[in-house]
């Protein structure tokens, strides 16, 4: 399943990233590595992007990008 299917407040461990190189590298640089616990915080008021919490900080990414992150 992917990150997008998490409910608000739900946490899951990252399994992998299914994106092209530049995007994948960017996400990993930001700390989304295998085994990292990600909590979905909420969706933006207009429906996109979403806010997630990981490694003690908050990150926002678009739904397209979130869909490329697979979680347990």
């Amino acid at each position: 399943m992917d990150l997008l299917s998490l409910k608000d407040g739900e946490s899951k461990k990252v399994v992998g990233i299914n994106a092209e190189y530049a995007m994948k590298k960017r996400l990993i640089d930001m700390g989304i590595t295998r085994g990292t616990v990600i909590t979905k915080v909420k969706t933006a008021p207009l429906g996109d992007p979403i806010e997630i919490k990981l490694r003690g900080y908050d990150l926002t990414l678009r739904k397209d990008e979130a869909a490329k992150i697979t979680v347990e």
Partner: peptide, 10 residues
């Protein structure tokens, strides 16, 4: 297109 991956600072 670098996507939109942005920190939401405290």
């Amino acid at each position: 297109n670098s996507g939109f991956i942005m920190e939401l600072p405290k």
